[in-house]
């Protein structure tokens, strides 16, 4: 006999001896049929961090428990009967899947069950739960399409069964707005590393912040946000430029290449390989900018072999505070075939 768990009520005990009950930490309890560590990867962990919660996954592959910065550890293996018993305590039937957010006082804050299973994966379900938690206090922000979808799903979240979050790629693309300042932001399309990404941005948003904060491309670094360090260098239509002084809206229609777009799968770009071999880096923070700048510089030079002095001159817009400069020159010079 299953019965629903009420929002605001005390969460049922999982009654798993291997699971140390930490009363002072929020917890997401998820019931899914099959789950493996790494299944939702970084997105899942980001959602857990956002909630400040640990995750307990009760699944046919076992019970997994971990914080967002821990390795997923299997704390128990349950027989189908045990699984059903635990599920029943939470009102989850045999075929159903569910997500519960339990606060540090042990009270259920969010309860979401779906007899048809969680569409969009566990990370999206937890994301929707997090949006619902925020819904009271947070004003509507500048959301991308996936976030809009999630936000649309969260109203009354605790009371309705979620039929599934639309995965982001299924979102319909709208025509970009050419010249407007919509109150909710500019709809733009960016061609990044060969993929067109549609999103709404604050007209004030730089290309750099858009890459880092919105598109998850954090390889491009923010060092000064004033065009004075070169850490944010990207290629725009093949030319090296600073993404911190480029408004995202102004990068439309250009082919944007970031450090993430350089390697071919596992095969490093020759410049990347050269930086590894010559130790052209230490802390690594200026490194993506150095590499993008070096790639841009060699493209500018065409077939011409640059002298060391020319390389130094051509790289003078990229500060390296660790002082890897001599190794950077060596790396760039060795990146071309026919050079030692």
């Amino acid at each position: 006999m299953t019965h629903a768990v009420a929002v605001g009520a005390r969460a049922p005990d999982l009654a798993l001896p291997a699971l140390v009950e930490t009363a002072d930490c929020p917890r997401v309890i998820a019931f899914v049929h099959r789950w493996h560590p790494g299944a939702d990867g970084a997105a899942l962990r980001a959602e857990l961090r956002g909630l400040g919660a640990e995750l307990v996954v009760v699944s046919g592959t076992g019970v997994w428990a971990f914080g967002p910065d821990d390795h997923a550890e299997r704390v128990a293996l349950l027989s189908p009967r045990q699984l059903a018993t635990v599920g029943a305590r939470f009102g989850v039937s045999g075929r159903g899947e569910a997500v519960f957010v339990v606060d540090e006082h042990g009270l259920v804050r969010i309860a979401h069950r779906s007899d048809a299973g969680l569409a969009g994966g566990l990370a999206d379900a937890i994301a929707a739960a997090a949006q619902a938690m925020l819904a009271d206090s947070a004003p509507a922000g500048m959301l991308d399409r996936r976030e809009w979808n999630l936000a649309a799903l969260v109203s009354g979240f605790a009371f309705v069964f979620l039929t599934g979050c639309k995965p982001r790629d299924r979102a319909q693309r709208e025509a970009p707005v050419e010249a407007a300042a919509l109150p909710e932001g500019l709809a733009i399309e960016l061609d990044v590393n060969g993929k067109v990404r549609a999103l709404r941005v604050d007209p004030r948003a730089s290309l750099l912040d858009t890459l880092r904060e919105r598109l998850g491309l954090t390889g491009t670094k923010k060092g000064c946000d004033m065009g004075q360090c070169g850490a944010c260098t990207v290629l725009l239509d093949g030319e090296r430029m600073l993404s911190c002084l480029t408004l995202a809206a102004m990068a439309q229609g250009k082919k944007i290449v970031t450090i993430e777009g350089l390697a071919q799968g596992d095969e490093l770009h020759p410049m990347q390989r050269a930086f590894v071999e010559r130790d052209g880096l230490q802390c690594g923070y200026c490194t993506p900018g150095q590499i993008m700048s070096a790639v841009g510089m060699l493209a500018e030079a065409g077939d011409r072999q640059l002298t060391d002095a020319e390389v130094r001159h051509g790289m003078s817009g990229n500060l390296c505070r660790c002082g890897a400069y001599p190794n950077i020159v060596a790396a760039i010079q060795s990146s071309r075939p026919g050079r030692p």
Partner: peptide, 9 residues
């Protein structure tokens, strides 16, 4: 003037 990147912009 400036840096190669800035000169490109």
């Amino acid at each position: 003037g400036a840096s190669p990147q800035l000169r490109n912009m």
